[in-house]
Write a protein that binds this DNA or RNA. Sequence first.
RNA 1: GGCCCUAUCGUCUAAUGGUUAGGACAUCAGGUUUUCAACCUGGCAAUCGGGGUUCGACUCCCCGUGGGGUCGCCA
Length: 466
Amino acid sequence: MIRTRFAPSPTGPLHIGGLRTALFNFLYAKQANGEFFLRIEDTDKERSKKEWEGEIFTNFEKLGIKWDNIPERQSERGEIYKAYLEKMLEEGTAYYCFATKEELNKEREELMKLGKAPVHQGKYRNLGLEEALKKIEKGERAVIRFKCPRNKEIVFNDLIRGEIKIHTDDIGDFVIAKDLNNPLYNFTCIIDDFEMKITHIVRGEEHIPNTPKQILIGEALNLSIPTYAHLSLILGKDKKKLSKREGSTAVSDYLKQGYLEEAIINFIAFLGWNPGTEKEIYTMEELIKDFSIKQISKSPAIFNIDKLDWINGMYIRKMDIDELTQRCLPFLEQKEGIDNKKVVEAYKDRLKKLSQLIELTDYIYEDELKYDKDLLIWKDAPKEEIKDCLNKATDIIQNLDNLNKDLIQEELSKEAQKAPSIGSFMWPLRVALSGKKASASSAEIIEIIGKENSIKRIKQAINSLN
RNA sequence: GGCCCUAUCGUCUAAUGGUUAGGACAUCAGGUUUUCAACCUGGCAAUCGGGGUUCGACUCCCCGUGGGGUCGCCA
């Protein structure tokens, strides 16, 4: 059975890139009827916070990414790591290192100068466990390093990139734990992937250099090694790694702006993946069905908000009006006599994201409109003509016995035919009702705000022209 | 600097040796419309460079160049 995992460290809000990694793991597992696990990598005690853990969980829930385990927390698995660490120390695949930071820095600089990889050569790799323990007893500080095999080529087959080879001499003896109780990422990662019986690891490209390290540790411990797939990075518009500079990187911010969950998932799925067909709108179920790791692209993808806007608009227009109204509620004012469903109906074709509703619909809820009276003037139509049109519109509205936007439109159109031009009738009316250059149509507004209010607004407009 | 990954329209990408290099977003033009959208029609726009291999290369190989990642007692 296929089992994947997403292993975030709870040091900040869920990131767009993290979401994509999680989604791909989820899709890959679900497609094969496998399991998707969550693991909290909180070995960095200073930076890890419980609140971020919660943030990650709730966002996944909202977005429809479900996990199949009780999330493991690395901070609670100290005994497991300790046992493996002791085993490595005893077997000599890891050793205590007493090198100071100064020594290490100097070594780094010198290697760089020689044009070599600045990796630790292992001054203490042959000291022996007993000797090391004596030094520690005397109070010397030590970290635990992996004794990296020399002159060996590590090869793994990446599902996305094919064969990747890395020479162990470019890796060196890296630190796997600060001490027995404080293991570090590359160590805990491979241990947990093994313990959790993870079969496939889909993660960001930045982990490619970590992969041979993890494989090496796994081999030293005789663990089975999972299959890897490394995703390209998501870049910002400036082609740099996606950063807060342009827009947000936090998933929750997009949710707050009124991007629909379905649209976000659809958009994120297409960042670096496509079905190979022309179908672009995908539900989660369809994604699970059609997802294929072979269709993942190797080059980085740029986060293009325009495309997100477009997809989001598609979802907004497609959505059932009652459900959409529910979702729009946070962005709409509440007012006696105003049916929000009608407001949403009038605006669903005009939205890219729900938060736009706030500015777009403010005039509906205001008691008195404030706008430049010149806006009422259609082209160079004389004031008297405009007043005349507005008066005629008032009569029509007054005589309306059914406030249905289609019927209203019909009546207004009839009258507009008689006007000097359709625009000279319709434009001032709409401005009188909305106070805006762009808005819903007059008929829609009248239906929403009602007879009284409509007439009141038109009267006001006429007065302002006097 | 070492190592690794990567390279098709502005952007996301399709085409796994033979296509007028396709689609979508964005953009532009037109239509529709009282406005703004939505919608419909159409246009602009790409194989990083140089060598090979081949009858034939976006596709395979090599060398450059560009971009990215990484080289933590972070993950």
